[in-house]
Design a protein around this nucleic acid. Structure first.
Lengths: 216, 216
DNA sequence: CATTTTAGTTATAGCTTCTAACTCAAGCGA
DNA sequence: TCGCTTGAGTTAGAAGCTATAACTAAAATG
């Protein structure tokens, strides 16, 4: 996509960057984002400390890059599922699979934010992309004959976030509920808040994914 | 409660511990848990570095103590609301108020966990206490005539987490949905994932708190 | 072939957590 | 009231971290 056929210098540079990110993901998976150490990565790569600053301007820059890749990965997963004709439960399965694949990646995207942090614009653009797929799949769903609640009415004239998507408020409402409910189950499960409670978190997840129209 | 009338030594010690924790909460509120620095706290208190180790065995110990206080605070908030006769929406309001009061405290309790971490038993006991209040309030609610879904059936013989609470599976199901759905909205809101989307997060929250029986 | 670019180095500043050894004052029993 | 003991706070220092500066050496480019 972006100038793929560059000189050998660029090629090498891109490869080292990728290796750094790979090691960073390993560290994050085992120690969380707060445990990520540039020095440790450098050691693992056989180079010494400050060399990494040739590739990333600092720890924050590296983490931001990982967050970006996390969003990108989820957006691609969603896009692929939707293109394969997934319905809403199918999208939910894709989300759950993606989350369980690397819990810390999920938390990097949807977890505790650092108070001052503001995500760069291109990342929020990917977030919108994810939401767009969700809206598409929601819109394709057979409408549920539910009477609109107060929030759905509110959405009728607060739909800026949906961009120019033509979905009616009921679909917007459904998409938001889908997102927040699945995140609720998933984040608590991944954080270990269900451990020792003895029930099957996946059943809860799929029940929430099915939505309330099954009688709940 | 715990040996209140102790010698002046103990009294002083307890007060300094409290001051340390107060400064720690300030730091966490402005910089997050990852930005908490023992040295900085010591500086603010006019004492120098290692003095803090007389009061806490290390950074992790201090943070664990703060987590404990966070849980305790939420449990007390819930208990107070329930004792004041709050129904489920009332409990939801209490939760939201508690969360907005100090978002980073919410994340300390329900946010991204550090991979290896296992909460001490007395903290999980408080978590059960919170769940017990929730179950009580759910049980007092007028039952919704909803046909049980697969997860509710599953709960019928996976109810260990409810302790000896006599609530039927439908109530357990409602309590879990209440918890996960409100956490879903709240954590995304506090993490800033709704900023720029233009809708009123509080309306979404109360809609989710009202539950699906309003037609959704 | 000479020049420029740049990847990687070491040295260093300044921060962190945390341990060790020490000082000195306050509390307490006789 | 005296003397001993406990313990709060100190400085020193080890080991780690991020990040910058200055330098070396190798590779790409004119």
């Amino acid at each position: 996509m972006t100038a793929d056929a560059a000189g050998p210098r660029e090629r090498y540079r891109a490869q080292v960057r990728a290796e750094i990110k790979a090691k960073a993901w390993e560290q994050i998976a085992t120690a969380g984002a707060s445990g990520l150490s540039l020095n440790a990565i450098a050691r693992q790569l056989g180079m010494s400390g400050p060399a990494l600053y040739r590739y990333f301007s600092g720890r924050d820059d590296l983490i931001t890059e990982l967050v970006r890749d996390g969003y990108r990965s989820l957006a691609d997963t969603f896009r692929a599922a939707a293109d394969a004709g997934a319905d809403l439960p199918g999208l939910a399965r894709a989300l759950r699979g993606w989350a369980l694949e690397d819990p810390q990646r999920y938390f990097l995207v949807y977890g505790t934010p650092v108070p001052g942090y503001r995500a760069p614009d291109d990342i929020t653009a990917i977030a919108r992309e994810i939401m767009a797929v969700l809206l598409d799949v929601c819109a394709a769903e057979r409408p549920r004959g539910a009477s609109p609640d107060a929030f759905e009415t509110h959405l009728a004239d607060h739909r800026a976030w949906a961009g120019d998507h033509p979905a009616p408020p009921s679909v917007l409402r459904r998409a938001l509920a889908f997102w927040t409910r699945l995140h609720g189950v998933l984040s608590l499960e991944l954080a270990g808040h269900f451990t020792g409670m003895g029930f099957d978190a996946e059943l809860l997840f799929t029940a929430e994914a099915a939505g309330p129209a099954d009688g709940r």
